[in-house]
Amino acid sequence: MRKLVIIISFLFGCSMLFAEELGFDEEFYSTKRKIRITDGIGMGPTKEIARQNAIIDARKKALRRVTSTFRFMLSESKNGEFVSSSVEEEVHAKIIDKERIINVKYDHGIQFKNGQVVAVVDCIITVSFLDLDFFAQEMLKTAEAACIRSLYIAGWGQIFNRAYFSGITMSLITYGSLGYAYYRSNMIEEAEKAYKAAKDPVEAERRYAQLRDHKNVSKMLYIVGFVTWAYSVWDAFEDRSRADEVLDQVHDRYFKKFPYHRKYSFFQEIMMDMRPEW
């Protein structure tokens, strides 16, 4: 039984050690995304120069495409035209890997003047950027939603909070413990009968040890399972609440155009008052 508890403690410890320490860190929240650009266009006197120009165009397009959904939030516009070109800088968008060329096309059925060559490149470009779409989605999540999810299924709240390792570990511990406890508790009745029917001191002692083992293991694992489940509910709520502080920072910095005042729920206010100063 000790071994079992050591394994559970180890898993639980790992889930806590790998739990993300929240804090607004641009590097931490950076998203890597592979973008396929099929229309990188470049012109030049030779095929190689045209190809290089097409790649430069593809890279620009990749940066523009990943930031396109939140361009409106960050750019200033005048007469329907964006006047600020600082969106990529603002969200630290950068190309972090060499582009992978899929195809380069030179023949378009048109002869260009002065013998210029036009290249159209199809390639995959890896871009890193601060994903404001992610934050926008996160802002809509509430602590109660995380809490209720964990109440239904242990670990779901953590997965909802994007703490995947913690969520899966807690789920495994909870349902593993409860499942095994149920399995062992089903063996109690049989073991009790065998113990009572034993007509030999040695057998009686052996059967007694088995019965005690079944009872102890099942009760212990029921406790472990339900305690972990309760912890998962509390942790989901707490994790979300702490994430809210980070999201407020993000909002103040990036989403000023959208007036937003976080309303803390009754439970959140209670939890905030009760929260220890870690």
């Binding site: 508890v5 559970i8 403690s9 639980f12 113990y195 001191p201 009686a204 007694y208 005690r212 472990v224």
Partner: peptide, 25 residues
């Protein structure tokens, strides 16, 4: 982690009493 380890250790130390109801025990 310390709190949880302590809690699990306490649970593992729990030895629930089981009746010795067989006279051959």
């Amino acid at each position: 982690m310390v709190i949880v380890s302590f809690a699990f250790y306490s649970i593992s130390c729990m030895n629930l009493p089981v009746d010795h109801s067989n006279p051959y025990d």
